[in-house]
Design a protein around this nucleic acid. Structure first.
Length: 467
RNA sequence: GUCCCCAUCGUCUAGCCCGGUCCAGGACACCGGCCUUUCACGCCGGCGACAGGGGUUCGAAUCCCCUUGGGGACGCCA
């Protein structure tokens, strides 16, 4: 099929969660891969539960993920006239009818059906009554009673649903607003959607929608139903499983590229490849390697992938992402500070941006504090000599290079007969306040001459004051 | 209850459509080792799965059936 047109139709009754994000991603990726179009549609016909805040949250999350749309956002509430004109068509062609049964009556019918061991359904009481439309009446579709409806699904294969399980479901409420299945089909037809990838909770809706397509003599789109994403307890992902909104992952320091990489791989595979750039994903994504079984969301794997994406980025790219986090922590980055160099030293040892920001602080603080435990262990009187000598030789260097610094510390080693570790650890505490940091030389280079010397001096004073 | 979907290491998955190359491969997690100035990174190794039962076949993870288990849907929600 040429001119693939896909869509993502969230209902704005909450934030964008993992499952929704993955569905959006699949549709977006497929459209991008095929050079087609991706349409965003907001399904806000449930006025009681839809909120503007949710709409904004969804936009924000999509934007963060880098999922852009070519058309829309359309709002279903702006399209009521279109829906009613299509309902009228169905009425005119005898594919639908008015019904004045009360909810209580319908409930009774359902109970009755259930008692008989059947699927709870409307019994078709008004089907042949040819009622005139009027206030308080709903419109129902005239569903076939015999035979079966086959859903051809590119992911699940063909599935056959007995029509006896379908009732004459409501397509228009008594207030004139459309029901979900009607609105969706009308939208998908009028928007030219020809490829529908959605959660497999919709698989059982599909025969109903096919019914409407047929009644409207419209061409069927290609359907693909992707399995659900489950939480660690094997139940559908929910708030119980901690962070749910996609934007919360941003706040936890995950990169959008890592997020989409993880999300796509959750259910889709490309041989043994685990790591994908955004560009690769667009090149390689396809519908025929989407799995049929539900998958569990695994934070560990997301985190591991995030670490890999952090390593794969350039320091310049990361500095854009990191800057806001650093500012939140109230450190001042000065012009002479080499943020990118600092980032480079942190890349292999940060799993998230939050972690990276945390461990970058020592580079930029005016005044670092020595951790008590670290000072106790490494700021002993015998550390004084190597620190002083290090300071002396470093001060003597015209400029700092890895080679220079190494030579300087070698001299210290020779003169003090200490092993490298005995010199490096006190230095590390002096420079960072802690016992954990990037390698000594790369760190000094990123820190710069001035701060390095100042901090060693301060450490020397600290030890002397204790003696 | 009724209908529908699904089933490979703890997790994500490759392999399944087109049976033999699979006493099942990769990744995450976990455990051990190497590297080493700390912590990481990296590298090497280990643990670990075809849900069960029947069939078909010379041969089944791969095809068929049943059972079991999990998930979903049955709304004037989407």
């Amino acid at each position: 099929m040429d001119n693939i047109i896909t869509r993502f139709p969230p209902s704005p009754t909450g934030y964008l969660h993992i499952g929704g994000a993955r569905t959006a991603l699949f549709n977006w990726l497929y459209a991008r891969k095929k050079g087609g179009k991706f349409v965003l549609r907001i399904e806000d016909t449930d006025q009681a539960r839809s909120t503007k805040a949710s709409v904004d949250a969804i936009f924000e999350s999509l934007e963060w993920l880098g999922i852009d749309w070519d058309e829309g956002p359309y709002f279903q509430t702006d399209r009521y006239e279109i829906y009613s004109s299509y309902v009228q068509k169905l009425l005119d062609t005898g594919h639908a009818y008015y019904c004045n049964c009360t909810p209580e009556e319908v409930n009774a019918m359902r109970d009755e059906a259930r008692a008989k061991g059947q699927n709870p359904m409307y019994n078709g009481k008004c089907r042949e009554m040819n009622l005139e439309g009027g206030p308080g009446m709903v419109v129902r579709i005239k569903a076939p009673r015999m035979g079966s409806t086959v859903v051809e699904d590119v992911i699940k294969g063909n599935t056959s649903f007995p029509n006896s399980e379908l009732d004459d479901f409501i397509i228009q409420r008594s207030d004139g607003s459309p029901m979900y299945n009607m609105a969706v089909v009308v939208d998908d037809i009028t928007m030219g959607i020809n490829t529908i990838i959605r959660g497999d909770d919709h698989l059982v809706n599909t025969p109903k929608q096919i019914l409407i397509y047929n009644a409207l003599s419209a061409d069927l789109p290609v359907f693909g139903h992707v399995p659900m994403v489950l939480g660690s307890d094997r139940a559908r992902l929910s708030k119980r499983h901690g962070a749910m909104s996609v934007s919360e992952y941003r706040d936890m320091g995950y990169l959008p590229d890592a997020m989409i990489n993880y999300l796509v791989r959750l259910g889709w595979s490309f041989g043994d490849q685990e790591f994908f750039t955004r560009k690769e994903l667009i090149e390689k994504f396809s519908l025929d390697h989407i799995g049929k079984s539900p998958s569990m969301f695994d934070m560990n794997k997301l985190t591991a992938l995030n670490a890999k994406h952090i390593q794969a980025k350039t320091p310049a790219e990361l500095s854009n992402e990191l800057m806001p986090l650093l500012l939140q922590k109230e450190v001042k980055i000065k012009l002479e500070d080499d943020l990118e160099k600092a980032i480079e030293t942190l890349q292999p040892r940060s799993k998230t941006l939050v972690e990276m920001a945390e461990s970058a602080l020592f580079y930029f603080k005016e005044d670092i504090e020595f951790e008590e435990k670290a000072a106790k262990k490494f700021f002993k009187p015998e550390s004084l000599a190597p620190l002083k000598k290090s300071l002396e030789y470093m001060e003597a260097l015209k400029e700092f290079t890895e080679k220079n610094l190494e030579d300087a510390l070698k001299k210290v080693m020779d003169e003090t007969s200490l092993k490298f570790g005995k010199i490096a650890q006190p230095l590390r505490v002096a420079l960072t306040g802690t016992t954990v940091s990037p390698g000594i030389f790369e760190m000094i280079l990123a820190l710069g001459r001035e701060k390095t010397l100042q901090r060693i001096q301060k450490a020397v004073q600290f030890i002397e004051s204790k003696a």
